[in-house]
Amino acid sequence: MDNLTHSMVGALIGQAGLKRRTGLAMPALIIGANIPDVDATCVLLGEMQHLALRRGLTHGPLAMLVLPLLLAVGLWWFDRWQARRGTRPAARLPVRFGWLWMLSLIACLSHPAFDWLNSYGVRLLEPFDQRWFHGDILFIIDLWLWLGMGSAIWWSLRRERRGANWQRPARVAIAATLAYVGLNAGITWANERHAKLSAPYPLVAVANEVPVAFWRREMIIGAGDGRWLVAGQPVGVMPLGRCDLAAARRHDRAVDAFLFWSRAPVILRDGDVLLLGDARFAAGMSRDRFSVPLPAGTCRGTG
């Protein structure tokens, strides 16, 4: 999910009452909910290498052990540093390292859990297993989550300033968010089941989420050979079997990185150039970002 959503998840957890457990709880929750995205810096290695490395190691089990601990140590040190300089806010609660680490861990775990919800997916077991896990449940930027969680945070903070029960709005929002995720999971399950039980009886069915209209899905179906139907329209100019992708991977690092990342590889054409794309992003403005030119001679019968 986008980083605003991750931040609001951390803030809601805090406003549900956990921010009273220790000083610097809210920074631990909000930073912790975003810190697995430190792998975004991999863009410096190039666009395709960035794709291959994103949502992998920093979202896996080793990172879930290391990142919360580093964050807790950093915040604990920051509190001590402010105390030595005489700049520590008097209203800040005492910092309890155990709670600081626990809240950092909860926040960090929320990040891959929410990333799993969309069709982009996450490598939950990296580096032990490089499989993608994906729920195909929510679009990566969900307007309704923004409105619901944002309103609840505002309401909770407003009630806190007035001395009222400020935890309740956040707790209601957490329950509503889980119900919303469950509703969308049911929509996805029904669409994918219907697609697999209907002609042409595909082996693969992806109920791709769409922005705003959470009740709709863009169905991507295929036989596993690189030819796909996206929203009923054929995508792909030839089967993957007509292309020596193994050789292309050996000779082109970008192709290798793209195939490592891709969940639904497809051969596309742009004029006289063949592209390796992904059926999830084969149409619209995202096509250029999620495709890479194939070396000449990779595919047979391209004249």
Rank of each mutant, 00 (worst) to 15 (best):
G10E: 10
A246Y: 00
L100Y: 08
L138I: 15
L24E: 09
P234S: 12
S7H: 02
F290M: 14
E218V: 04
M102T: 14
V9Y: 05
L259V: 09
A282W: 08
A185L: 10
L197Y: 01
A91K: 05
R193T: 13
P239V: 00
A248C: 03
W166T: 08
N3I: 13
G303W: 02
W99D: 15
A246I: 06
A28M: 08
P202F: 02
C42I: 04
L240V: 07
L124I: 14
M149T: 15
A33I: 12
D129V: 08
G74V: 03
R158Y: 03
I137A: 06
F290G: 08
P127R: 04
P239H: 00
N208M: 05
G303P: 14
G74P: 11
D79M: 01
Q82A: 07
T41N: 02
C243H: 11
L4V: 15
L245W: 06
Q15M: 14
S291G: 10
I35V: 15
A40I: 13
A107H: 08
L178N: 04
G150N: 04
L57Q: 00
S286H: 12
L65P: 00
R217F: 01
G56T: 02
L268A: 06
L70N: 03
C42R: 00
W146T: 13
M285C: 00
T298F: 00
D39H: 05
A199K: 03
E192R: 07
S198C: 01
L145Q: 11
A264D: 02
G301L: 05
E126N: 13
I221N: 01
A33W: 05
P27I: 06
L245M: 05
P169Q: 12
Q49K: 09
A279P: 11
I267P: 04
G222R: 13
A248T: 08
R216Q: 14
F97T: 09
